[in-house]
């Protein structure tokens, strides 16, 4: 039941926040400071965090726009071309 509630929380995290949390989980598992039941939860959360980080990296694509300010104060965007 906790699994379902953590997913939206993770989705909100930035890449670096997710990475920090992931490192914390690895730390906890490494020093064995958690009990078996929460270790399963933490591991599952760790996998979700890892997927989230990967997703964040995948999302990024190069796109270059150039802004033009029109005479009436409005603006338009077009693809950037270096002239």
């Amino acid at each position: 039941m906790k699994k379902n509630s953590t997913s939206p929380d993770i989705a909100k995290l930035s890449f670096e926040e997710a990475l920090v949390k992931l490192e914390e989980i690895v730390g906890k598992l490494e020093d064995g400071s958690i009990d078996l039941e929460s270790s399963i939860e933490e591991y599952t959360k760790g996998i979700q965090l890892k997927n989230h980080c990967e997703q964040k990296l995948k999302e990024a694509t190069l796109k270059i726009d150039q802004i033009t300010i029109n005479k009436d104060g409005t603006f338009s965007t077009k693809e950037f071309k270096n002239s």
Partner: peptide
């Protein structure tokens, strides 16, 4: 400036490292 080497230097470096959305305000 939308012309010249400066904007291209930035675009190329960003492209190499982590492609994102760049918005050029000339």
């Amino acid at each position: 400036s939308p012309t010249g080497a400066v904007i291209m230097d930035i675009i190329n470096r960003v492209k190499d490292r982590f492609p994102v959305n760049l918005i050029v305000y000339p």
